[in-house]
Amino acid sequence: MTALPVSTVLMVTGFGLVLLGYSAILIHRNILKMVIGFSLVDSGIAIIVVALGYVQGGTAPILDADTTAATVFVDPINAALAVTAIVIGFAVTAITLAYAIRLYRLHGTLNVDAFTESRE
């Protein structure tokens, strides 16, 4: 089939998503688009974390009836870290969105260039 290992493909995707997220953050002036960018970064990081824990031919680290000594598992630590990261990412996205709403209420706009009252 293909020469690339599965986890590499997934890593490329994850990093690609992170890059896409940052480009959204840097280029779009709409703060909601910036927040979308951050949530893309979060998803990308979760993908990278899982990809890094993948072991060739590995299955979920859940022992059940058909587990044998030869069974290869993927790294459970990465899975645990990814779950934590996803939850934290969601929490932070929520609070960022709340600030975006607050900004909109105060200014009537979502354009990031309008939010430069304190500087230098």
């Binding site: 899982v50 824990g53 993927v74 929520a94």
Partner: peptide, 27 residues
């Protein structure tokens, strides 16, 4: 979906429910 295929069902559930499910709602 990718997580599910790569042996991380726990992450898959978390991502589906939290990351994309509730995430879209709050958006």
């Amino acid at each position: 979906l990718a997580f599910l295929l790569l042996g991380a069902p726990d992450v898959a559930m978390a991502e589906a429910a939290i990351g994309s499910g509730l995430g879209i709602f709050i958006f």
